[in-house]
Design a protein around this nucleic acid. Structure first.
Lengths: 226, 226
DNA sequence: ACTTTTATATGACAATTATCATATAATGCC
DNA sequence: GGCATTATATGATAATTGTCATATAAAAGT
């Protein structure tokens, strides 16, 4: 099994502040696993009892609404940790984590993380900063959902997907989501999402080929977002 | 000036985990002040350089949207701390804090809080739990904004205002907000908010007298929220 | 390869929500 | 107390968005 000391992925999360000794301890208690696209890492309401460190792949953090639809609250990728909030709050998780690509993750038990939190100030501060970053993103998202219309939010989301996940060699968005998933980020009906994508295509802002989306005019998209 | 050791308000925040000595230290460096209704404690983009502990009154945490409207992201009251997130992230604050009632607050400098964070594990854990609670609330809010319609969100907000801030002797909501402020919580136009309040009144769900709102039928309101 | 299922696309229409106009009530100010 | 300003209320209308129906394309299973 891979060793945490040699895993570059940890550099992207609070785990970067762990000492060599702590990394070795962690290596000995972690569990690596593979998650296929569409499978859940954990479901809303479960007790997670640790955190997952994403080594590869992307997952969606969703929450079930009263109307039966899932809302995507966050997309998480390589290097990020899952389940920090519920671990700290000592509660069942409030979100489901579902792979949108094949993933490799490592599970680190709660006792370990709490130990690091109490003995390593750099780690606790770094973990805290990560949660604070999530909170800031959530604030921004709330304002968008409350004040922007669907067209503006779609344009914003396309730009966000490019910024966070980058492009393939053919310049299309690297992360390929279904229309339903895109709709579930911006909080609209799938049909409305499809319709607006078609409109953006007609306006020459994007190109569509199956799940592939290519941004053609970033400037105009930004102008739509305002 | 009042002493933190004797201030009951601290029992409602992470400050409850401070030792007697730490409280005395804090007492000596804090600054108390009074904020009139409508005044800002701090504005989005400012460097706050500490946290505010609310001794009395309620404030709204708002964020300016691109369309020029303010979105209320959170209502904060007695016992809660303001500015924790930006202090930890070491960034200018992303929200404005504006009094919706006359307030009394105490300012505690950043250096003090960071000191407690590093020397007192119970405090750092408690502060972390508080931010995690905010994040969970933000997730819930996002799902509501994305998946519920305005009527459902208004019903939910009225029930929330009763739950968090309670009632006056005459059974009306203790926290009196303007129609514009309520609209700015649920993310809609002021006119739409007013219209739906009138509708709720016609349906016998609430009673309106100026800014006073009295919930008459909690069961039906809950049914609207789903 | 063919069938079944699911995803994407689009039309038609209904429901929701925003905007603008205007009226009235409430509040603050000299 | 009277005037100015602001908040609340409601109508009329337009814009946005959701829902249902249906068609086609793509993917998955046998």
């Amino acid at each position: 099994m891979g060793k945490c000391e040699q895993c570059i992925v940890r550099e992207f999360s609070a785990l970067k502040t762990l000492t060599k000794d702590e990394l070795i301890t962690m290596s000995n208690c972690k569990t690596a696993s593979t998650i296929k696209k569409g499978e859940a890492i954990f479901m809303e309401g479960e007790n997670v009892n640790g955190v997952f460190c994403i080594k590869a792949g992307v997952c969606k953090m969703t929450k079930l609404s009263a109307n039966g639809k899932d809302q995507i609250v966050k997309l998480t990728q390589k290097g990020e940790l899952l389940g920090q909030r519920s671990l700290i709050s000592d509660e069942p998780t409030n979100l489901s984590a579902i792979a949108v690509e094949d993933m490799e993750v490592c599970f680190i038990p709660k006792s370990e993380i709490i130990g690091f939190f109490n003995q390593n100030n750099a780690f606790s501060m770094s973990l805290m900063k990560s949660v604070c970053g999530d909170l800031k993103d959530a604030d921004d998202m709330m304002v968008s959902l409350a004040q922007k219309n669907v067209k503006e939010r779609l344009a914003q989301t396309l730009l966000y997907l490019e910024e966070k996940f980058g492009l393939l060699e053919d310049n299309s968005l690297r992360l390929q989501l279904s229309r339903e998933e895109i709709a579930s980020i911006i909080g609209t009906a799938t049909e409305s999402c499809i319709r607006l994508l078609s409109e953006f295509k007609k306006l020459g802002l994007i190109e569509l080929q199956g799940k592939k989306i290519t941004i053609l005019d970033k400037v105009k998209l930004k102008r739509i977002v305002e």
